[in-house]
């Protein structure tokens, strides 16, 4: 058997290779890969947004986050990629609510950044679904809430954007460290 190539940090300038168009390297590629869903992706439009916090509770402003999920009818996979905002640290995915699988719906996430030696897998569940029986959430025990989004401003969001906005903050360390996965 061969050995897997070791991972190395994506460094602070991951944008050059992964989101060049939104990082000022315009014209080389027509668009950043995974910048948006196709207009005909079936499902209910939603937004997922949040920040990624380090152990000093500071948001990462140089991270890259990728999303992998089924569309609203489980016809096809949706892959999206965003960098966290260089000033605020906010990431934002405009997507559709994933179809439920055998259990409650969720999206898969993968995070890389300066200081992260090996990319981090996690999942985000929805607060308005029947999450009780999900085996991963059960396994997460007292840390299960770190995997479930919130809707702090549900009414405001619907008024401002016309669709649900789910807030999902990721914590790399500390008392509320997000559950990361070995798949």
């Amino acid at each position: 058997m061969l050995k897997e190539t070791p991972s190395q940090t994506a460094g602070p300038y991951v944008h050059i290779g992964c989101t060049p168009c939104s990082a000022g390297l315009t014209g080389v590629y027509p668009a950043d890969p995974g910048a948006s869903i196709t207009a005909d992706a079936p499902g209910v439009r939603i937004r997922i947004e949040g920040k990624i916090f380090d152990g000093a509770n500071a948001p990462l402003r140089d991270a890259l986050i990728e999303l992998w999920q089924p569309d609203g009818q489980s016809n096809a996979g949706i892959w999206l990629r965003k960098s966290t905002d260089l000033k605020t640290g906010v990431y934002q995915f405009d997507t559709v609510k994933p179809a439920a699988r055998s259990g409650p719906p969720y999206v898969c996430l993968w995070i890389v950044a300066r200081g992260i030696n090996l990319g981090l897998h996690t999942r985000m569940y929805f607060p308005d679904e029947e999450n009780g029986p999900d085996p991963l959430l059960k396994q997460a025990g007292p840390r299960r809430d770190t995997l479930i989004a919130t809707r702090p401003d549900a009414e405001e969001d619907e008024r401002d954007t016309g669709f649900p906005v789910y807030r999902f903050d990721i914590r790399l360390q500390g008392e509320r460290e997000t559950v990361f996965l070995d798949i």
Partner: peptide
Amino acid sequence: SSILRSPQQALLRI
């Protein structure tokens, strides 16, 4: 940079 950005809990095996 890894000091404040490294998870401290074990990964959950799926």
